[in-house]
Amino acid sequence: MTEAVIQARGLCNRFGSQTVHENLDLDLYRGEILAVVGGSGSGKSVLLRSIIGLRQANEGRVTVFGQDLAGLDERQRSQVERRFGVLFQKGALFSSLTVTENVALPLIEHAGLSRADAEHLAGVKLALAGLPISAADKYPASLSGGMIKRAALARALALDPDILFLDEPTAGLDPIGAADFDQLILTLRDALGLSVFLITHDLDTLYTITDRVAVLAQKKVLVAGPLSSVAQADDPWIHDYFHGPRGRAADDAALRARQER
């Protein structure tokens, strides 16, 4: 088995008296696309935040590339964080910068490029993420939801990270855009050896690109494994999730797509 780039062990997250995670274990292996699914409010985004260090878990530890993030000093931490690319649910683009400047910012700050080079490279990333050229000089406030997603992906990819965290990347995209997005993730993963941590509700994404699926329910990772085995798991919620009308449709669509290829 390949090495785990992220290991979460015994993670507990509580908000006041409400427990979101209890003794949660999760691994992300190098080069895989791991999808985390779960009902609304099952703590998927909280899990993401505790892994990337935006939230200190109440108990348990997270090691990234074999290092415990909480135990690192600021400089080492910044080194590790540079290897993360995070796409937040609502994009989290800086509203005072244009889209190009948003993507160029980490290139200037961390890769030490000149402004002209950084903006040129930012243009490449934006093109890669599928953003139309007319949007490059706009401010995030004047972009549509789908465009914000793409611009945010371009920013997440700016430093060619090792691990890509995606929080519901295809939500709010039209089906064509969502399918392109899936293919883009696959291409990047294959070419760059990215490890992808993907939170999604999009069953088509699940069936098309994921290597493993982790189901978050009852405050822990209920099952984790390849989609085919997870879908067969003996749990009513999982059964409803994968074998409901939408699950069946996505399964059929993925099957047809594979046959056509």
């Binding site: 243009g123 599928g130 070419a191």
Partner: peptide, 21 residues
């Protein structure tokens, strides 16, 4: 390698029609 070729072609396809105005 297959992966590098895919990456090159993907990047090329995207930047083809994309020049900074």
């Amino acid at each position: 390698s297959e992966a590098n070729r895919a990456l090159l072609q993907t990047v090329y396809r995207s930047v083809q029609n994309y020049c900074i105005p």
